[in-house]
Nucleic acid binder design. Sequence first.
DNA 1: GGTGAAACAATCAAGCGTGCATGCTTGAAA
DNA 2: TTTCAAGCATGCACGCTTGATTGTTTCACC
Lengths: 202, 202
Amino acid sequence: MGEAVREPRQDRSRATRGRLLAAAVDCLAEVGWTGSTVSVVAERAGVSRGAAQHHFPTREDLFTAAIAYVTDERVEFLRAALPTLPPGPDRTRFVVDAIGEMYAGKLFKAALQLWVAAASDEQLRAQVLPLEARVGREAHQLTVEALGADESHPGVREAVQATLDLARGLGLANLLTDDTKRRHRVLAEWATALSAKLATLP
Amino acid sequence: MGEAVREPRQDRSRATRGRLLAAAVDCLAEVGWTGSTVSVVAERAGVSRGAAQHHFPTREDLFTAAIAYVTDERVEFLRAALPTLPPGPDRTRFVVDAIGEMYAGKLFKAALQLWVAAASDEQLRAQVLPLEARVGREAHQLTVEALGADESHPGVREAVQATLDLARGLGLANLLTDDTKRRHRVLAEWATALSAKLATLP
DNA sequence: GGTGAAACAATCAAGCGTGCATGCTTGAAA
DNA sequence: TTTCAAGCATGCACGCTTGATTGTTTCACC
């Protein structure tokens, strides 16, 4: 088992912790909330169940940390994807597509499992709500900037929110089947309507 | 698996079966997929666990039937809500709002639990997919009729689908918090855009 | 009214996930 | 080198859920 270079004490511990969190997110996306037992997560992380229990005494501790972890990952994803879009007439199209991809990926699937599980778990809900709100604010802000939209105009704020809500709905549809083709068609149509809306008042 | 769908001979039996299915849907919406044990469902239905087991030998049998049940309920809901909308200039607004309500209600919450659980359960997915597809087709068809839209025009079909996907996304946002106010604002804005789109080519 | 099958109830065994308690290993400081 | 705490591994007990078994009641039909 002891393979590769043994890291210094603290770094190795941090690495184990990180592997556990990454494995928790992967498991959520692949085997769901109920299927993500600590044994399964630990095995995927390549550590023993006892090691997992050392870092996260209870299962709740593990997934509480996983929520924060996946939140950071999603914000990071958005920050990385949105600002690099080329300016020009098709910018709206690119932005809308990028958001669509974000809500079709592994991170969203994992977050969705937490989101739905939190609907019937008070403890979890208390953890999920503030962090999801942060993702929402961040996504909204980044989208406004990427689109170059002016929220002081009436309806613009709602149009941006609708874009994010639409992406969520499309992401949901993408859970059970690969909905990529339909998503691109819908988003393409949506992008034209959105850029028309934004063009009326710049 | 090939079971002859045995018709209950007695009214009492049929009533018990119906209560179990209704209770299963309620439990899904309130305590989620993992919390909906057969004991919980049976207790809510006011029958013993043995009675539940008589009607549905396994838990899978129970929720397989519950999927079909909630599907029928959702289609019924749509059929009842959409065609009764008053015609006129605000019809688009009414239709969009009605769809939004549909995806904010108990039936959607229950279906969402099944949907997410099915993402990591092959058996469940096989049951959910065709029935959800039926709900999707039905919702699309009814929406087109209620809007009086002509799908032969380019973009109209995508606009209707976007309406449904947007409603799904808003319904998801409505899971953990009461999102009614924001939903109405977003849908109002979308309704104006949608009616503008539909008005360009009638 | 008796009979048999369906409907309902109660109990039991097995599997699984969690949490705890107990050891072993590592590595840095004394 | 010795020491000691953090990191890690293993085994066990408890609670919960499921599915099967057996017993009891209800009801249609002869």
